[in-house]
């Protein structure tokens, strides 16, 4: 059980999970309220909203916090339940890569809408 001893870490992941959680409280509330307001918009009105500086900035912040929080959470789940070493490493790597990709695609889309002429 002593196995390889204490990793002397884990606090950082724990802390970042909480930090991103705190950031996501106002950001998800903003997203939920905005989606409610814009759910029936036509395309042009929606784009006009997404182009406002506030919406663009908050959307980028949301995507960053969300994808970070999501990666940390999903990785804990894999560590909990998947105990085949190779499968676990593959799954953890995949989550990291896909989360970054998701954040980049989302941020790029937001910025394209916000910044295109």
């Amino acid at each position: 059980m002593q196995n390889l001893g204490s990793a002397r870490e884990g606090a950082r992941q724990w802390w970042m999970q909480r930090m991103t959680a705190v950031a996501l409280i106002p950001l998800t509330l903003w997203l939920a309220a905005s989606l409610l307001r814009h759910v029936a918009d036509d395309y042009a009105t929606l784009i006009a909203w997404l182009r406002t500086p506030l919406a663009a900035v908050l959307m980028v912040l949301l995507l960053m916090a969300l994808c970070y929080h999501m990666a940390l959470g999903l990785k804990v789940i894999i560590e909990d339940y998947v105990h085949l070493d190779r499968l676990q490493i593959a799954a953890l790597t995949l989550i990291d890569l896909l989360s970054v990709a998701l954040a980049v695609v989302g941020i790029f889309a937001s910025l394209r809408v916000a910044l295109s002429a």
Partner: peptide, 25 residues
């Protein structure tokens, strides 16, 4: 949390479709 990860996928899809133009949206 897992369901919301799928939701994050949808959110990005939605943003990408908005960026892609009215037809995709």
């Amino acid at each position: 949390g897992v369901a919301l990860s799928a939701g994050a996928l949808l959110l990005v899809w939605w943003l990408a479709s908005a960026a892609a133009g009215p037809d995709a949206y």
